[in-house]
Computed example of a mutant assay.
Amino acid sequence: MSRKLLVIGSFAAIYLLWGSTYLAIALGLKSIPPFILMALRSFCGGIVLLAVSGREIASASLGTWLQAGLCGLLFFVGCHGVLAFAQQSVPSGVAAIVLATIPFWILLIDLVFPTVRRPKPIALFALVPGFFGVGLVAWQNVKLAGISILPIIWLLASALSWSIGTVLSRRMSDQAPPTLLSGMQLSIGGVVLFALSWLTGEFDSFRPGDVSMISIAAALWLIIFGSVIGFTAYNWLLENVSTSLVSTYTFVNPVIAVMLGTLLLGEPFSRASLLGAGLVIVSVIVIWRAERSSDCARTRRSTEARGICHCTKPDSN
């Protein structure tokens, strides 16, 4: 498969599949406690990916496991666990909108702790319309749904946790293949989430026989599409595409989540929310173009000695 198709498919996974996971979480929470739901999502997805990795597991060093464990805690306990807990009192669309602050955290981290690929200034400015779009949709939903501020603070903290995990995971992307790395992070995060659900008493009140079919279907969707496919695509993109471009999924996810929440769960939506969604799309387009231009410039510089510009010729892989 060509690199171009892999990029398109991977972005489709984190744009569309991850956008639908907020609805799946809302449906899963109808009869499954939040930490148990996220533990099932992470641990089962991680075991599948570790099984697919096969003998590659033996090549992973102790240091790689430790770093993967730290990323797993940030991704799946600090972010997904808190997200599911907050979604007990927050509409799925609002949760996705608040998590759209992830690109701002990532850019801030990259500016404070620069790497080889620093974010372009235009990428930072391109986030401005998306920021106002997210704020507009969040304000509308908070006003209509009467949400308290505390769950919003939890969601902002979960966005920061995911951002730190993203930066750390990106910097260790050369230590293990994306599938293995994803499996390590998911399985470790899942184990900790199971422990957390036990410590909070969820297991005492959880009755597997009372779980509805719709919650089971939602959990399977989260495991297969949210974790196995989506998170593998995410780690692959972190290794092959600029982080600021990858982080645009957080602008698309709220649009998908709000649409699904409105259509299937009857969550509130308004013209102002539609305007906010339009601003989000503008940000994504501008960042795509900015990063595409940056990639082309780097390619020209690295190949001009041979008189080749891969940005102007079809992908032949």
Rank of each mutant, 00 (worst) to 15 (best):
M184R: 01
L16E: 09
T200P: 01
V286G: 03
T248K: 03
S10L: 05
T250N: 15
L181Y: 01
F113I: 13
L181C: 05
S31H: 06
I188T: 07
S169T: 14
I308N: 03
M184Q: 14
H80R: 02
G183S: 10
W198F: 14
S42W: 08
A26T: 05
V52K: 06
R207T: 10
L264K: 03
L49E: 12
G45F: 06
L144C: 02
L156V: 13
T115V: 11
I188D: 04
G9S: 10
W221T: 06
I32C: 07
V241A: 11
A86I: 00
I25E: 05
P254E: 13
I164K: 01
W18R: 04
F225A: 08
L279V: 12
A24D: 08
S169R: 01
G19R: 08
T303A: 11
C309A: 09
P91G: 11
S59F: 01
V246P: 04
S247G: 05
L83T: 13
T250F: 02
L99Y: 03
A39D: 12
P208N: 11
V94S: 08
P208T: 06
C71H: 05
G189W: 02
R271Y: 14
S89K: 09
S187I: 05
V77S: 07
I122H: 09
P114M: 12
L199H: 11
R306M: 08
W162M: 13
V191C: 02
C44N: 07
I224K: 04
L199W: 15
R171D: 15
S61G: 11
R289S: 07
A13Q: 10
V134G: 14
G93D: 13
K4F: 01
R55H: 04
F231D: 13
M184Y: 01
F43L: 15
G276I: 02
G209I: 06
A277M: 15
L263K: 03
F132K: 08
P121L: 15
R171E: 14
V94L: 15
A126H: 07
S173E: 13
T179L: 10
V258I: 15
L5C: 03
V82F: 00
I97L: 14
G146F: 00
I285P: 01
V98K: 04
P254K: 09
V241E: 14
S215M: 04
Q175S: 13
M38E: 15
V137E: 12
I256P: 00
A24H: 08
A195M: 14
L275P: 07
P151V: 11
V241C: 10
A95V: 00
L5P: 02
A12K: 02
A257R: 04
I308Y: 07
R117E: 14
V134K: 01
M1D: 10
F125R: 04
V82S: 02
